[in-house]
Amino acid sequence: MNNKDAIFIQINDLLKQVLDPEIGINIVDLGLVYEVSVTEENEINVVMTLTTPGCPMGQSITNTVTNLLTRHLPGYTVNIELVWSPSWDAGMISEAGQAQLNGSDRQEESEEEPKSFWNRLF
């Protein structure tokens, strides 16, 4: 594994620590991160979206991304580009994300019967 690959893995791990506060799953598995690139000038460019353009948590999410990457990768400049096309859709949530969303870390458990009376009923 070369240095560039190691940086990408580290960025991916850091981005996985950023949760969408409303949904409670990380922005990578939520499908909000579209593209990550690292330039020769040590710039990290993150192209990402939000669940909706008016998302009140938007500032919080982008600030967290900047704070985390800057703190853990001090030699790099972080640029975030918010894009609205393609617009985010729940279909972009990864299988791991869906498993987290439904209270299970293991994908195979996501098909289990829901626990509460309401969720069994409907």
Binding site: I23, A90, G91, I93, Q98, L101, N102, G103, S110, P114, K115, S116, W118, N119, F122
Partner: peptide, 10 residues
């Protein structure tokens, strides 16, 4: 919307 939801538990 409920039928096509991704979030199963409410």
């Amino acid at each position: 919307a409920y039928r096509s939801r991704v979030r199963r538990e409410q």
